[in-house]
Amino acid sequence: MKLGRLNHIGIATPSIQDSIAYYRDVMGATEIHEPFDMPSNGVKVCFVDTPGENGTTGTQIELIEPLGADSPIHGFLAKNPSGGQHHMCYEVPDIHVARAEFEAMGKRVLGDTRIGAHGTLVFFLLPRDMNGILTEIMETPKAGAGH
């Protein structure tokens, strides 16, 4: 498995609006997308762009807030009431090949491969198998797609 581009860092937050204010007012972020609901994943999402080279977008920050009582983020926020880093997400060219390679290495996948916030297929790897970090693997978005 070859390490792909770091697409985003997921930050769980009890309030997306408070986190938007933090990234805008304290960190100076100027590219903040509109928040949107992802009922299928139980979260509200907002992407904050960081600057990349030559005017491109660098690594994004994905703010995630629980959406509804069944949100998987509730457990994280119960342990970390102020929020914090939830996961790191890396791109791969082929999600199915990547999943097979991780599983062949004995890495445990959490749940099914599904559509993520960028509109591409994703899966998550168990933190115990990934140096203590919940790791999201996503198929590289097609040009002009997603957030």
Rank of each mutant, 00 (worst) to 15 (best):
C89L: 09
G144F: 02
I115K: 15
C46D: 03
L110N: 09
T120S: 15
T120E: 12
P81K: 11
G55Y: 08
P127Y: 02
I133H: 00
V92D: 02
S71D: 03
G10V: 05
I11V: 15
V26C: 07
I73L: 06
D18N: 04
V97E: 07
I137R: 15
T120F: 08
P93S: 14
R114F: 02
V48C: 08
T59R: 10
T13S: 04
L6R: 03
K79E: 15
L121R: 15
D70E: 09
E139R: 15
R128Q: 09
P39I: 02
V48F: 06
Q85H: 04
P93G: 13
D94V: 04
V45E: 01
R5G: 02
T59C: 14
F102G: 05
A78L: 06
V48I: 15
G55N: 09
G4S: 08
S71C: 03
H87R: 05
E53Q: 07
G84V: 13
V92Q: 03
I95L: 12
F124G: 07
H8V: 09
D49P: 10
H147D: 10
L77A: 05
G28D: 12
I11S: 08
V92Y: 02
D18Q: 02
E31C: 08
I16V: 03
T135D: 03
T56E: 07
I20N: 04
M1L: 07
L126T: 05
G146C: 13
K107A: 12
Y22F: 14
L126Q: 06
L121F: 10
G4T: 08
V122Y: 07
Q17N: 05
G146P: 06
L134M: 02
G55S: 12
H147V: 10
E139A: 06
V48M: 09
K2C: 01
P93N: 14
G4M: 03
K79R: 15
G146S: 15
G28F: 10
F36K: 03
C89G: 13
I61M: 07
M27Y: 05
G58M: 09
G10P: 06
T57D: 11
P14A: 02
K142C: 04
V26F: 01
K142S: 13
E34D: 04
G28N: 14
Y90E: 01
P141S: 13
I61H: 10
T30F: 00
I32N: 10
N41I: 01
A145I: 11
A98L: 04
R99F: 00
F47H: 08
M38P: 00
M88V: 06
T59A: 11
V48Q: 07
V122E: 11
H8C: 08
G106H: 11
G28I: 05
K2A: 07
P66F: 00
H118Y: 09
L3R: 08
D94G: 07
L77I: 07
P66D: 01
I64L: 09
G146E: 14
G10E: 04
V92F: 01
D49F: 09
V43H: 01
T13E: 02
G119D: 13
D70Y: 01
Q85C: 05
N54M: 05
A69F: 00
M105F: 05
H96Y: 00
E101W: 04
T56A: 13
M27A: 09
E34C: 00
V48E: 15
T56G: 10
P72G: 04
K79F: 05
G68Y: 03
D49G: 12
F36W: 00
E101F: 05
L63E: 03
G58T: 10
I20P: 08
H86R: 11
